[in-house]
Computed example of a mutant assay.
Amino acid sequence: MQSWAHLFIEQVRATSLLEWLAVLLGVAEVLLARANKVWLYPIGIASTLISVYLLLNVHLFAESLLNVYYVVMSVYGWYHWVKKRGLTPVKVSFATRREWVITLLIVFAGWGILYWLLARFTPSTVPLWDAWVSSTAWAGMWLLARRKVENWLLLNVSNLFAVPLLFHKNLAMFAVLTVFLFVVAIFGYLDWRKIAKGGKA
């Protein structure tokens, strides 16, 4: 345990200013999202672009690609918010059997395809793990776009595996941010579950 604590302290000390900035912007994005403020989008885009650069530097290529997708979806979300804010949002609900089938296809087909691409065409040292973290996050984001309660479960599977992966790549503060996101996702799941059952969050 002491060696883990020592490793964590050493990694925090070695954290670059860019990583600190990305993490602080990431925390701000989550807090703005919870407060339902449109500023979550530009703040999130800035955080994600920095993250792409840092993840590429440590050869986490699938996570980099995932973050590019985050940027695209943030731009879309920002536009959607500004142009269609007055419209009734899609209701929160539980995933159907068909949606679960699609979700599992995204997870396992995505895992296999990403692993093959990373192992064959990149110098990644963790292709299997990187691919798994990204494929589960892609599935979670698909469910999130459809306002399904289970999106939080898939995102937390991704978060759970991402934490040790980020530590392994000496991105300690990214790992801490992911722990924070893990906790937020637990409360998100409980809130959305209550809403889907007809209650209020």
Rank of each mutant, 00 (worst) to 15 (best):
G110R: 05
A131D: 05
A145T: 07
V92Q: 06
S93G: 11
V90P: 01
I102L: 12
K84M: 09
A139H: 00
S134L: 03
T136Y: 07
W100R: 06
M141E: 06
T103D: 03
W116K: 15
W132V: 09
S135M: 02
L154V: 11
T103K: 03
L155T: 11
S124C: 08
A137W: 03
I102N: 06
W129F: 04
K83C: 09
R120G: 14
W111E: 03
V133T: 12
K83A: 15
F108E: 05
K148N: 03
A145Q: 09
K91E: 15
S124Y: 01
A109R: 04
G110D: 04
H80R: 14
W111L: 07
G112W: 02
D130P: 06
T125A: 14
T136W: 07
L128A: 15
W138V: 08
K91T: 13
E150A: 04
F108R: 07
V82Q: 13
Y79E: 03
W142Y: 15
W132T: 13
K83S: 14
V107T: 04
L87W: 07
A119N: 10
V107K: 00
L118W: 04
A131E: 00
W100H: 10
V126L: 14
T103N: 09
T122N: 06
W152C: 00
W138E: 02
T136G: 11
G140C: 05
S134G: 12
R85M: 06
A145W: 00
S135G: 11
R97V: 14
K83Y: 12
V90R: 12
D130I: 09
R146G: 01
H80Y: 11
V126S: 13
Y79W: 14
K148T: 06
W111M: 02
K83D: 06
I102E: 10
K91P: 03
V157T: 12
L118G: 00
W152P: 00
Y115A: 02
A119H: 14
W129T: 11
W100K: 05
T122L: 09
S124A: 10
R147K: 15
R120T: 14
T122Q: 09
P127Y: 08
V82K: 15
W138P: 03
K91S: 15
T96Q: 08
W132Q: 07
T103G: 13
D130G: 09
V90H: 08
L117E: 01
T136A: 13
Y115W: 14
W111N: 07
Y115K: 10
M141S: 13
A137P: 02
A95W: 02
A137E: 00
F94C: 06
A131R: 01
W129H: 11
L154E: 00
S134H: 01
R147C: 07
T136S: 13
W132E: 03
A145C: 08
V92W: 00
F94G: 02
K84I: 04
L105K: 09
W132I: 12
V157S: 03
E99D: 09
